[in-house]
Every structure is written in C-alpha cells, then in structure tokens.
C-alpha cells in the first residue's frame, strides 16, 4: 500500500512556516507542490510547475490573492485558474490555462494535503503544539530504531531524559522522511529548545543507522 492512499492526508508543513503572502516548496503524495498563502490568510497547494514554460511556482511571489510565477509573471488564483499574463495585459486568460491544485487543510498549526477527495478531516493532536519541521535522510524504520519505539498513526513518541517529544512523520520515498516536531503545548522556551536539540540528536542517530544499513 502506498503511504498515502487516495483521500488520506499528508502533513506537509507547519502553518507558522507559511505566513500570509508567501510561497514555499513542499512534497505531496502527488509530487512537488508550491504551497502558498493568500494575503487574506488562506493556504493553497499547486503542482510546482508553471503551465506556461515549466518554471517552479514555488520560486514565485504572492500578491494579494494570487500566486505569480517568477519567470514571466503569470498569476493564478487559489482555484488554479490563470488571471493575468503580463506580456498580454489586455487579454483575459482563457479558463483552460490552469495549474493542478490539491486539497489543503490548515488546522492545529499543521498544513495537510490530500490527493483526491478526503473522507474526513485530518487528525488533530490535542494538547500538542508544533515546533519545527526537519528533513531526515533516513526512512521511518531507521527513525523508529533510533527512537527505540514504533510510530502509530504516523506519530512517534520519543522519550529522552524524562521528557517526550512527538514526531509526526511523513515519508518522502524510502530513504527520506519529513519530520514535524511537536511538543506539549504548555512547554516553556527552554523546554522547546531542548526538544529541538533532542530531535537533532535523533536525526543524527537515524541517519547513522541508515548509512550503516546501506554500507552493510
């Protein structure tokens, strides 16, 4: 079974990492996306490829409620339809010029993408607050081995000293994992910094395991 069957949700980024009027690259179950947020605060995900000449839209810029491509400035509304072609300002772009969009949910501080019609909303993690996202050059198996515990529903509880951080894992192929670090929502700044450092240590351990596995 693929990690994200049609209709299931993948956690692709933290809401705080995508302020209004910005765009960032992300991985979705259907490939690379440009994840962006309108000025009014709504998040959207487009295939990361401009329909004009193939430039990555994640290099573009957000003005108001549209995402524009950095190459020739074509701009697209949240629904994916092209709104403006600067080289032909008088033209109303035909409705056929559109970029593929994906379902986005932005809740509990996490941005989720689903490919295909989702049956229900994405999970919520009551009492937890997202801290940071990091890319691990190792698969989930190596992360589980490093943490000494198994992930359940994509969530790995990692206990270090006598604290716990929760790692929300999203596989990006076999050998890479996107890891969102969640902490108890009433953690103070020092505890959050400790949690970030614990996640760094876990990543190092998992990558060592993955490297040793390849070497073997």
């Amino acid at each position: 079974m693929p990690p994200y069957p049609t209709g299931s949700w993948m956690p692709v980024a933290l809401s705080a990492d995508l302020p209004a009027q910005t765009v960032m690259p992300a991985q979705s179950p259907a490939g690379p996306v440009a994840l962006w947020r309108t000025r009014s605060g709504r998040a959207a995900a487009f295939a990361d490829r401009c329909p004009h000449r193939g430039m990555r839209l994640s290099h573009g810029f957000v003005r108001g409620e549209t995402l524009a491509c950095i190459y020739h400035g074509w701009s697209y509304a949240k629904a994916g339809n092209c709104q403006r072609i600067p080289a032909q300002p008088a033209l109303t772009p035909p409705d056929t010029i559109r970029v593929a969009t994906q379902h986005v949910e932005d809740g509990g501080g996490i941005i989720w993408i689903s490919v295909g019609e989702p049956a229900a909303g994405p999970p919520r993690f009551e009492g937890l607050a997202p801290l940071r996202s990091m890319v691990v050059e190792a698969g989930i198996v190596a992360l589980e081995a490093a943490a000494g515990t198994k992930a359940a529903g994509g969530l790995l509880d990692y206990t270090y000293d006598d604290r716990t951080v929760w790692l929300l894992l999203a596989p990006d192929g076999q050998a890479r994992t996107l890891m969102h670090v969640l902490v108890n929502e009433d953690s103070n700044p020092d505890e959050r910094i400790d949690a970030s450092r614990a996640a760094e240590a876990l990543r190092r351990a998992a990558e060592d395991i993955a490297r040793a596995g390849i070497a073997r």
Binding site: Q21, F61, V62, G64, P89
Partner: peptide
C-alpha cells in the same frame, strides 16, 4: 537573488 516582487503592489499602467 531575485527581487521580492510581492513587496511592491501590482503596478498599473
């Protein structure tokens, strides 16, 4: 390093 075009509003001719 490209200009952050979003820092200027869409200009009108």
């Amino acid at each position: 390093i490209h200009r952050l075009h979003e820092l200027t509003p869409a200009p009108v001719l």
